[in-house]
């Protein structure tokens, strides 16, 4: 693996290797000195064209725990008309000797472009691009699912995961469908038809318009953020109607099997896709997802940068 651009870059073996590596590295987090010398002397650049404090901090912490030097590069705008171009930014980072570039960009495919246009030589990690993918989010979700529901080892064979919300605009959903299916899970997407992408019926998952039909047979339910402003583009009539039809409230929580967990990639819209009671319940694992995010990102950087040898 040279880059991590899409969850589709990982076959089951590679995905399980990332998860197993993350599990080993997670042990470091439990020590009083939370640091490994593995990436000493290597430089990881966090190139964020979009505000995302939580993802940036997670990558920053992951790199620092591996002793890498971390540079945070927050760029505003991207097209030629709005400031420095992606290309010039990339050339700058290359000149500074970045070993890995973690990129968050509002344009789908920007990480792919960065990795293939010949601008830089280092590894590229997609930290979320437009409405395309967010592969490390999918990895941390798989890690969390595995730890809770599969004893922390192997794949996710037969695990029933329901993903609810704005699939159309969600990079989290795309990466999760790909990765969880690769790991053997049975994924169901639930959304109003307006918030499902064209061609979703060819994805490796089931599709439903009815959350209440899906919940009783779910081992985990993942709620996606839904922006209330989508109502202005007629994706749904009102925030209240959306919330009634697709929101996870206390009654719906009761419809889940007892062992089922509730996930959310954050940031949550309490009262929209998830009620405050559910978000704060002991079934919700959002805080643990954040912790696992650091471990999984450590594993990705470790595997991409080839451990401690310092060789490229």
């Amino acid at each position: 693996m040279r880059h991590l651009l899409s969850a589709a870059d990982l076959d089951a073996e590679a995905a399980i290797l990332v998860l197993d590596t993350a599990a080993e590295l997670a042990a470091v987090t439990d020590r009083s000195v939370k640091k490994l010398p593995t990436l000493r002397g290597r430089t990881v650049v966090n190139l964020f064209f979009e505000d995302s404090t939580r993802t940036r901090i997670s990558f920053e912490m992951a790199a620092k725990r591996l002793s890498a030097d971390v540079i945070n590069f927050a760029a505003k705008g991207s097209s030629v008309s709005k400031g420095e171009s992606l290309k010039d930014t990339a050339l700058t980072l290359e000149a500074m000797g970045a070993d890995a570039v973690v990129i968050r960009h509002h344009a789908s495919g920007a990480p792919h472009r960065l990795a293939t246009a010949g601008w830089i030589a280092g590894a590229v990690v997609n930290a979320g691009d437009g409405t395309h993918e967010h592969p490390t989010q999918a990895l941390l979700d798989a890690f969390t699912l595995r730890r809770h529901l599969r004893g922390g080892t192997g794949g996710l064979d037969g695990l029933r995961v329901t993903i609810v919300g704005d699939v159309l605009h969600s990079r989290v959903a795309r990466s999760n469908v790909l990765l969880l299916a690769t790991l053997g899970a049975d994924v169901t997407l639930v959304a109003p038809p307006t918030l499902l992408p064209t061609g979703v019926h060819e994805w490796p998952c089931r599709v439903s318009y009815d959350i209440d039909e899906a919940l009783p047979s779910s081992d985990a339910v993942m709620m996606l953020r839904v922006q209330a402003e989508r109502m202005h583009d007629a994706y749904f009539p009102s925030a209240r109607e959306y919330s009634r039809a697709y929101g996870l409230d206390r009654d719906r929580l009761g419809a889940l099997p007892d062992h089922a967990i509730v996930m959310h990639p954050g940031p949550m819209n309490r009262g929209m896709e998830i009620s405050a009671e559910v978000a704060d319940s002991d079934r919700a694992v959002m805080v643990e997802q954040v912790t696992n995010g650091v471990s999984v990102r450590m594993a990705v950087l470790y595997l991409l940068l080839g451990g401690s040898t310092g060789e490229k």
Binding site: S108, G130, H132, E133, R174, T198, G199
Partner: peptide, 16 residues
Amino acid sequence: AQMNEGVLSGVLGLTG
């Protein structure tokens, strides 16, 4: 809109 709307636009996350 960025590309033809179909299965591929959904996968690539580009507006159809």
